[in-house]
Design a protein around this nucleic acid. Sequence first.
DNA 1: TGTACATCAGTGAACGCGCGTTCACTGATGTAC
DNA 2: TGTACATCAGTGAACGCGCGTTCACTGATGTAC
Lengths: 196, 196
Amino acid sequence: VPYPAERSARTKDKIVHSARALFNRYGFDRVSIDQIMAGAGLTRGAFYTYFGSKSDLYADTLGCFLTDASSKVTWKGVHVDLEADDAGIQIIRAYLSRQHLEAREEACPMVALPTDVARANIRAKRAFEHVFQTMVTRLESGLNSNRHPRRATAQAIAALCVGSMIIARASSDPAAAADLCDASLRIALELGGWTA
Amino acid sequence: VPYPAERSARTKDKIVHSARALFNRYGFDRVSIDQIMAGAGLTRGAFYTYFGSKSDLYADTLGCFLTDASSKVTWKGVHVDLEADDAGIQIIRAYLSRQHLEAREEACPMVALPTDVARANIRAKRAFEHVFQTMVTRLESGLNSNRHPRRATAQAIAALCVGSMIIARASSDPAAAADLCDASLRIALELGGWTA
DNA sequence: TGTACATCAGTGAACGCGCGTTCACTGATGTAC
DNA sequence: TGTACATCAGTGAACGCGCGTTCACTGATGTAC
């Protein structure tokens, strides 16, 4: 046993994180295994020591978004404390922030990769669903409104945040993108009953 | 002049529609020019008579979604009459319908291709933005609520519809997908002031 | 009306390139004695 | 402590394949006479 087991776990982690940044920025199909491995400080061939194929890697990269953010999420200076009383407000403010809009590599995978996932294998879809359900659950527990079933409200707020961000990213006009995020934040706050 | 000008316009249209169906189903990168041209009943080489490159075609395919649907939109039996009094309700019902969820080739490009567009050229982004702004404008004029600025409400409803559909598509569980669409429809109806 | 011609939409072989994957090999490591 | 060895993470050349694009050519068409 020439190497400790923990070492290979760390290497695999480096590959997953390199892949995540590249997938987020360029999409699954436009990233090569050479690029992923170079980002992890390795070469091509070693990839198959850790993964059976390129698509096997996909689900793992989706999963690492939540694993990393145990109870703190950060996007270039925007912090979310998931234990706080106003976690719901903090989540949607961070989600719809300019920082998240511009953070290509560290963005939420639901914003960067949803259409890739829609065409991917079932493992990737399950990982994606888990991210969404986690966001919904966190929003639901912080809700301040009972006008609708709480779960439905949380689902709608999450979908609104994700949808706004996706459209803002595909927009050619930065002002229109910011405008959309602001409008969505306003409505989302109201839906959650967080209007001060 | 061996062929009438109208003939080449029809051929170009056939290529664009073939491309649209294929892009919607498989995404930009996974569709080859051979496939597109075969779908239009032609062969590879003729492509460059009509387009300078594969990416030049992209913006045109996004545009054709709106051009086709002048004042009637149909998704496998779900009709929308944009001139009707309740056009707003009709739009969001059609958008969040099971038919739209399952219509891969005829789906709204905002659902099928947003992340591709986010990485595409400016022409594609502008075409995408135009689709979104058109949807927002149509929703705004049908709004029945003045609780928030009308434009902001319309933007949020549109983003909610698009986001729900995208997430539902990437979901592994059909029941959860349908549940999300139902929840979003409920909230969207309320936001528009269309709760009967 | 019939024939020769010019046009250009469309063909399909060919090119170069980059990618996913394989595999014989290397060399750094921990272990056994 | 020092040396020989077994292990296996990592290397990088090689393979086959499919793609975007080019280009010399074809052949159906409308026109001129």
